[in-house]
């Protein structure tokens, strides 16, 4: 029924007179919005890049020619490469269960999935220390079997997974709820198996939403600081991620280096956002023609 309503009113139709504001109001609103975004978003963003290039382009690239920086970059990519796919599979499964079926306790389940959004990153790091730390619940057992989780890569991956937990699910649940279940039911009636239904009907419908979720999840996974800081142990060249390395450089009075590495993250963020905009437009185009 959602597509039906969009058919009546062509979206983004040229604003008609009665639903448009006088030009000066329009420009005033645009001006205020841009000023607000400028002060809060553009200026800090610009500050990162200006500081990063304060000592010239050569010095900027020199920063990356350092074993510790490279190992931080490597660890960040490894972490994201493990955490994002796992959360992605979870997101699809959760969205399928929640959107396609009715059951009691759905609201509570959705809230629990939302919860990591609002748990302080500090707390999310701490709970893993409580669980896996040497003084924690499982600590003695892990120590006996010489399994390292906290202050090693597994702990960093776990903390990252926790923090980015809701992104994909949160993106897919409303989308799949809006799409309803009629298409899948039709496919089933026509004899498709469960997997076929999912691969041929559901996935094509949600792929752009899924991509959007994955992109945001990935951006957050690479940029997480608070939670990872608690479980990392800060061993140079071993358990430092890019955000932690930024902090280290900053604390060594190497401000230019810190901002240079930070600008790499910012650059990744900007690329991510560009990808996301592209995904959204595809998505919109698909929705526009698909019906």
């Amino acid at each position: 029924m959602v597509p039906a309503s969009t058919l009546h009113a062509p979206r983004r139709a040229a604003p008609r007179r009665v639903t448009a504001e006088p030009p000066f109001v329009r420009w005033l609103l645009i001006g205020v919005a841009l000023l607000f975004l400028g002060l809060f978003l553009v200026v800090p963003l610009a500050a990162v890049f200006v500081e990063a290039f304060a000592k010239g382009v050569g010095y900027y690239f020199h920063t990356f020619n350092d074993a510790n920086t490279l190992s931080a970059i490597k660890l960040t990519f490894i972490t994201a490469a493990i955490a994002v796919p796992l959360n992605c599979v979870f997101g699809v499964a959760a969205a399928w269960a929640i959107a396609k079926f009715d059951f009691r306790g759905k609201t509570v389940l959705i809230t629990l999935i939302d919860l990591p959004f609002s748990v302080s990153p500090v707390v999310s790091g701490m709970i893993y220390v409580l669980l896996f730390g040497a003084q924690g619940l499982l600590g003695p057992w892990l120590l006996e079997h010489n399994i390292k989780i906290i202050f090693a890569v597994p702990g960093i991956v776990l903390a990252t997974m926790f923090v980015t937990f809701p992104f994909v699910a949160r993106e897919l649940i409303p989308l799949m709820q809006a799409q309803g279940r009629t298409e899948e039911e039709a496919a089933r009636v026509l004899g498709a198996s469960g997997w076929q239904t999912f691969w041929r009907v559901t996935l094509p419908n949600i792929k752009w939403g899924l991509l959007y979720g994955v992109i945001l999840c990935n951006a957050r996974a690479m940029g997480e600081f608070g939670a990872v800081s608690v479980v990392s142990g800060h061993i140079r060249g071993q358990t430092n991620t890019i955000p932690l390395h930024v902090e280290i450089l900053y604390n060594e009075y190497n401000f230019v280096g810190a901002f240079a590495v930070a600008s790499l993250l910012t650059f990744l963020a900007v690329v991510t956002l560009a990808l996301k905009t592209w995904a959204e437009r595809k998505n919109a185009a698909l929705r526009g023609t698909g019906n």
Partner: peptide, 25 residues
């Protein structure tokens, strides 16, 4: 379109970087 993409920046920018940049500004 640029402004539209920019809105997501706080989602994607690492919080420590945001903190340092905001303090500097």
């Amino acid at each position: 379109r640029f402004v539209d993409a920019l809105v997501d920046l706080p989602f994607a920018l690492p919080t420590a970087v945001a903190g340092i940049a905001l303090t500097a500004v």
